[in-house]
């Protein structure tokens, strides 16, 4: 082979060779930000002090574990990702990373994250992280995602574990507060996602993934949003009366949940004709409010924990 032959890199496929950024994209960095934030809140809300380096390491390894499950999700769902516009540019369908590379990367990082979290904190936190990865990949991605329209409900559980893992990393146990923080994200995910499904023309149908809007119709989706929002509001306000709550959290929760409930009722009362007339304004407003909703609830829990040493946070 001569130097000249190396210039025909396109023939050899070198132009499509993965960069560092392509491997980083396999970790689903946007999803990772939610994992980092909620794990951080779970960790600082815990009623024990954690060395800053240990806390940083714990959140980092939880994030790496979450990222690894993202890579494994892309490995399994490469066929779906190639069909849908939203995901067609991901590293595997774009031809930057092979499925085998993504699988090896995801498995290696999963093992690394679980072992390192166990060494840095405790076995319970490591076990919960391992279970989260297993749940997201095997239970959700491989089994239920293509089988039931309740896939979003079940998938939401995987995204809800980080605050519980953060809490376990700090305390070595799981308490009612940790379970309620889990439930907050778990119950929030379905109305958040179904509102998005109502106003976007998603191509899940092409990928043969059952979505509630398609399998049960849009009327049923509106009812589902309302039911989940009512349950979520009760849960979110209930969390305010536990040790992680306080006046700040309760005030934020009452205002945001009243607003969220009003949005859900608006969506429930509308039909498709009304929605199409104003280009799904109520659904879009509800979706935007849902983003602020989760951030503000966990932000308020963090505020209670951070202000407590000054006698301002908590009950």
């Amino acid at each position: 082979m001569s130097d000249a032959s190396l210039n025909t890199s396109k023939v050899q496929g070198l132009e499509d060779e993965a960069t560092f950024g392509d491997f980083f994209a396999l970790l689903k960095p946007r999803v990772m930000t939610l994992v980092v934030f909620t794990a951080f809140v779970g960790l600082i809300a815990a009623p024990v002090s954690v060395h800053p380096v240990v806390g940083f390491a714990a959140i980092l390894f939880i994030a790496v574990g979450g990222g690894a499950s993202g890579a494994l999700n892309m490995w399994w769902d490469a066929d779906i990702d190639a069909v849908m516009k939203r995901t067609a540019k991901r590293p595997i369908p774009a031809g930057k990373v092979t499925r085998d590379e993504a699988f090896a990367f995801g498995i290696a990082l999963s093992g690394f994250a679980v072992v390192m979290l166990g060494l840095a904190t405790n076995l319970l936190a490591a076990g919960l992280l391992a279970f989260t990865i297993f749940f997201y990949i095997v239970i959700y991605t491989m089994w239920l995602k293509r089988w039931t329209p309740q896939n979003i409900v079940i998938g939401g559980a995987a995204g809800a574990f980080p605050p519980m893992i953060g809490w376990a990393a700090a305390t070595g146990s799981v308490s009612v507060e940790a379970v309620l923080m889990f439930c907050l994200t778990f119950m929030w995910t379905p109305p958040h996602f179904w509102a998005l499904a109502l106003f976007t023309k998603m191509d899940y149908d092409n990928a043969q993934v059952p979505m509630l809007t398609v399998t049960h119709g849009r009327r049923s989706t509106r009812v589902h949003i309302l039911v989940y929002t009512v349950l979520l509001a009760a849960l979110a306000i209930g969390l305010g009366f536990t040790s992680v709550g306080g006046p700040i959290y309760l005030a934020v929760a009452v205002v945001l949940n009243l607003n969220f409930l009003k949005g859900a009722v608006d969506i429930w009362r509308r039909d498709e004709a009304a929605s199409e007339a104003d280009k799904y304004l109520a659904e879009r407003k509800f979706f935007k409010a849902s983003l602020l909703y989760l951030f503000a609830h966990f932000g308020a829990i963090a505020a209670e924990a951070l202000l407590a040493p000054y006698g301002l946070g908590g009950w």
């Binding site: 960069t19 800053p52 240990v54």
Partner: peptide, 27 residues
């Protein structure tokens, strides 16, 4: 192209070494 990938991996490994050192001191 490979230099950027190798540099990225090198920095990640260096950060990991620093983190393990920090964890050891903390423990």
């Amino acid at each position: 192209r490979r230099f950027s990938r190798n540099l990225g991996l090198g920095l990640v490994l260096a950060a990991f070494v620093a983190l393990v050192f920090g964890l050891t001191i903390a423990k």
